[in-house]
């Protein structure tokens, strides 16, 4: 099994899908000749040519709008938006067309496309390059929203997204792109969109996170287990919408306590949705209010102080202790 970082495993997934299915084409700003500003699409122009690897003009709304149109003709476009901050330019086409054509055409025109985009903080970037706004898309009916956390699941999740019959928003944690390597199997692994993964079983408390927040969550877990003698169960959400409510409910019904971690703002964030579901389906098992460690309801700060905005292991440990102390 080769060792890969996430940038490489995403490139592998695109390559595999383009190789397997001629209908898959990729498009976006600087993705062809330049191979993408994060080099995720590197080498694909040389392999698959200009018709399938398209450098588009600088206009996000039209990138998504035209990808929808191409999907309607039977292609499977994978559109890259250079930074998730600029999906805002495409809000119109995502909400008005990408999410709706299947329903609007009474099933005649499905939109089997993927919107890939790097999100999240931690790379010392200028304004609009660090946001985490997955909640917008979870709030939009008709879309699926998935977020991988490491090289291995990124590869299989992108495969699943490209082969999904419906439009998928694929958020890539850019802070993880080159953060570490792990074994990635030779053959793509089957992974189902809508399923979470229990990455550690435990009995005292459930920690739920996804994307770039899996790393501080796992770091906190290590400390909690080793130094504080807390038996933590950890869940990688992977799919934001649809959400694997059952796995979450099963876990929290067992542990009775839960802390959710995400870097996006708190107000109407993904944690709020999870808390609502646990409230609906696991209420009688709860031994403490479900806690959340999130970004704050402010604009992502300038990068000299971004580390204070982002959830870190200490803050997570603090929240876990608080939740465990509740009687």
């Amino acid at each position: 099994m080769p060792q890969m970082n996430m940038a490489e495993s995403l490139n592998l997934a695109l390559d595999e899908c383009m190789n397997a299915d001629e209908r898959v084409c990729i498009m976006g700003e600087d993705i062809a000749v330049n191979g993408g500003v994060f080099r995720i699409t590197k080498g694909l122009l040389e392999k698959y040519g200009e018709d399938r690897v398209i450098d588009t003009p600088l206009a996000e709304n039209a990138i998504i709008g035209t990808a929808v149109g191409m999907a309607i003709t039977g292609l499977k476009p994978v559109a890259e938006i250079q930074f998730s901050g600029f999906t805002m330019q495409a809000f119109d086409q995502i909400e008005q067309n990408m999410a709706r054509y299947r329903n609007r055409s009474r099933g005649r025109y499905p939109v089997p496309m993927v919107l890939r985009t790097p999100y999240g903080g931690g790379i010392r970037a200028v304004e609009h390059h660090s946001e985490s706004r997955e909640a917008y898309w979870a709030h939009t009916p008709g879309l699926k929203v998935v977020i991988p956390s490491g090289p291995r699941n990124a590869r299989s999740l992108l495969n699943a997204a490209i082969n999904d019959p419906d439009p998928v928003i694929f958020y890539e944690p850019k802070a993880v792109y080159r953060a570490y390597r792990e074994d990635v199997p030779d053959e793509p692994e089957a992974i189902e969109i809508g399923k979470a993964q229990v990455v550690r079983t435990g009995s005292d408390i459930t920690l739920i996170a996804y994307g770039a927040m899996m790393r501080p969550t796992l770091e906190a877990t290590e400390d909690l287990v080793d130094l504080h003698n807390v038996d933590v169960e950890v869940i990688d959400l992977l799919s934001i919408s649809p959400m694997d409510t059952q796995t979450l409910v099963d876990s929290v019904s067992k542990t009775g306590r839960c802390v959710i971690v995400h870097e996006g703002p708190r107000n109407c964030g993904i944690a709020a949705e999870i808390i609502a579901r646990l409230n609906e389906k696991a209420f009688e098992h709860l031994e403490a209010p479900v806690n959340r460690v999130t970004g704050y309801d402010i604009h992502f700060p300038h990068f000299q102080v971004e580390q204070h905005y982002l959830p870190d292991p200490d803050t997570i440990i603090q929240a876990v202790k608080q939740t465990l102390a509740y009687e």
Binding site: G85, Q89, V126, H302, Q304
Partner: peptide, 25 residues
């Protein structure tokens, strides 16, 4: 300052009617 990630760099100089530059194309 502003290019090195310090918010203070965005203080608009006195007497100038300028908008802070835009990153969004």
């Amino acid at each position: 300052l502003l290019w090195n990630g310090y918010a203070d760099g965005f203080n608009i100089p006195d007497g100038v009617n300028d908008l802070p530059f835009s990153i969004v194309i």
